[in-house]
């Protein structure tokens, strides 16, 4: 199982598409590691500087419909090679969400209210999140406060995380 904890990167915008996560021109790469330096290169987000802001981050908190657009699995790979294994949002585009779990990574859906609260209370401070897969809880921590929030994922998604992804699962089961 992958590690699901670390510093939080806040992306305060909805409908961030996979072209913004990793532009199409890098789809010619055949090694995942080549995507590393191009994550969020073209994102449209005021005040965001990909070179500075992605460093040492492991968890993304963002707004609704994250990962819409292209089906490219290069998007979760670009996150993965940067050490980001968790994205938390009110909702995800279907293919992106499936791609995350298929690769043994976590896409956690929380209600809009909860995401609003997290943004309000933590966005402006250095924040860490750690995910407890047993208790299905995330712990959010800044220097001023700590908060624990429970979440749900399906049994199937859990099985994918535990077996390390869909290829191994499918090859043993079908």
């Amino acid at each position: 199982m992958k590690e699901f904890k670390g510093n939080v990167l806040f992306l305060d915008r909805s409908d961030i598409n996979t072209d913004e996560v990793i532009p199409a021109k890098y789809l010619t790469e055949i090694e995942k590691t080549a995507l590393k330096t191009h994550l969020f290169e073209d994102i449209k987000l005021d005040g965001f500087n990909p070179e500075m802001d992605i460093k040492e981050k492991a968890v993304i908190v963002t707004r609704e419909n994250f990962g819409c657009g292209s089906s490219r699995e290069h998007a979760p790979w670009a996150l993965e090679v940067n050490g980001i294994h968790v994205v938390i949002a009110p909702s995800f585009a279907r293919i992106f969400r499936q791609n995350m779990f298929n690769g043994g990574m976590l896409a956690i859906e929380l209600s809009e209210d909860r995401i609003n609260t997290i943004f309000k209370e933590f966005k402006n401070s250095d924040t860490q999140i750690s995910v407890d897969m047993e208790a299905l809880e995330i712990m959010i921590q800044s220097k001023d406060q700590t908060k624990t929030i429970d979440f749900q994922i399906s049994e199937f998604d859990k099985a994918l995380i535990q077996t390390g992804g869909w290829v191994e699962y499918a090859d043993t089961h079908y």
Binding site: I95, Q98, V167
Partner: peptide, 12 residues
Amino acid sequence: VGTTDLEVGILK
């Protein structure tokens, strides 16, 4: 679908 789903589609 993404590449992993495609991979399983090809395989299984």
